[in-house]
Write a protein that binds this DNA or RNA. Sequence first.
DNA 1: CGTGATTACGTTTATCGTAATTATA
DNA 2: TATAATTACGATAAACGTAATCACG
Lengths: 311, 311
Amino acid sequence: MKLQQLRYVAEVARRNLNVSDAAEALYTSQPGVSKQIKLLENELGVTIFERSGKRFVGITEPGRAIIEGAERILREAENLKRLGKEHAGGDSGALVLAVTHTQARYALPPIIRAFVERYPKVELALRQGTPEQIAEWLEEGEADIGVSTEGLDNHSSLVTLPVRQWHYCVIVPAGHAALKIPRLSLSALARWPLIVTSAAERMGLRAAFQRQGLEPQIALTALDADVIKTYVGLGLGLGIIADFAFDPARDTDIHCLDAAHLFESSTTRLGLRRGVFLRRFEYDFIQFFAPHLDRHAVERTLQGGGGDYQL
Amino acid sequence: MKLQQLRYVAEVARRNLNVSDAAEALYTSQPGVSKQIKLLENELGVTIFERSGKRFVGITEPGRAIIEGAERILREAENLKRLGKEHAGGDSGALVLAVTHTQARYALPPIIRAFVERYPKVELALRQGTPEQIAEWLEEGEADIGVSTEGLDNHSSLVTLPVRQWHYCVIVPAGHAALKIPRLSLSALARWPLIVTSAAERMGLRAAFQRQGLEPQIALTALDADVIKTYVGLGLGLGIIADFAFDPARDTDIHCLDAAHLFESSTTRLGLRRGVFLRRFEYDFIQFFAPHLDRHAVERTLQGGGGDYQL
DNA sequence: CGTGATTACGTTTATCGTAATTATA
DNA sequence: TATAATTACGATAAACGTAATCACG
């Protein structure tokens, strides 16, 4: 049994049983992959892939278990390599962050500024995507640390760590009637067209209205807070965004009203691949972002069976 | 990185940093091991072993982590091989049981009779040893399943499963005065010389006396129940053995008195290496032994983080 | 017939073992 | 000086890539 063979098997399984694709992805020849897989099957005495003639059409039941094991082994091997880099490379290396728009635009800049100052030799890459994409990138090892408010919890191969709680707030154009209301209520909000993110809808914003028998007028569903602010500025309606996405210094044409009493609070979370080895600068990045997440807290969660760390 | 290299590193670490010994154990040459380790260190960019000139004198801090990872990988690889055999070999294979004397002599015979009838092609090996040896054999992969009443719990790499509870009983030669006592007490027992196992002493037998301010007269400390029964038959004293070690059909010269009310009950436990892949016949063996331990219960414990299954 | 896996075969690379060398206790 | 790791080197074997072949849709 060779690590190479396990790599081949795992890659073929990942590429929908297409040996040619797998070979290309692994920068090697198709016959090589084919042969090594056969050798492994021979050694283990088990056919891993169901074949119809010469074509791969499925995974046998023992094959499934073998692929799982192979992936565990490969992850561990990956960890060893990282471990090497950690001790050899010192303060240089690469860090790929997978984050949502709002995090990248509002929450992360000060963190990243501090990080690049501390670790100038680390190549920092920011990958922006939906929570689903972020989870996928983490699972595939294409990103090291994910940041998102939702969508990371339903993946058993990931662990999540709470960074901080935040609330929604309502942004209002200057001179709008809503500014005269002393304490905002849902029924008042329902009177005006609203501009929200699709994420906010998923997070139960619409449900909050409906619990009081109200139906909000959603004028526009945007993907990010910047778009929302733009349209609020144009007078299309009231915006609902995360409180930390309002910048009093820059957003002078609009006002921000507290809405903590109207909607449930949300928690920004970090996502990591379970059991992964983290380099020192990764632990430090996490602690820059969430000071309560020291190395020990993160390690405990990474190793821990199921339960995620609670805020 | 090659599996072979990881094997070499792990073996050298296990053999007190002696490359020559490791090479011999791996049936290969010393220079080969030496070279592969150096290659791995080169690839990872980390020195794993501290050297004084040409001699290995210690393990570096990153080396420790690498060896740990290597061992995890090797265990997983071992699992894949077993997985292959399971599906290829069908009902044949090998099963190494590591057990204490009392288990081998009294608890296991009916189980093993049933097992060999069901799996005649499985090569069954019985290794008898102390609880400490059993734990060690399991950890090293030299035995598949361990059975013991004590000594398996303090090993983090093992999981244990409860098989059944049992009590101590007192065996008495025919015509002995103790037979006339209606209900045995510790103070009565303290009047006669006792013959016990060293295991029973560890399990708190002596402590039970001392809690009542009594000091038992230990005439003889034996290693197994057969020896105890022999000397009880010779009239050297009363014996204290596990209840299931008394065989009314065979042990006609001695009597057995219930002592469940005098000493704490004990629990026979199975020991397994954490996370190991078990073959079908191993699951079946376990269930022959402890019907409540079906495949699911065992799997849950094997994967489970820390907690052992409770009876 | 085109896509895609296997077989055949020559090249290259890496592994292994013996022997010689060097360093330590 | 004995023990133990490294270096050198030749023999062996494994992996790789190209080209040809074969099977399925």
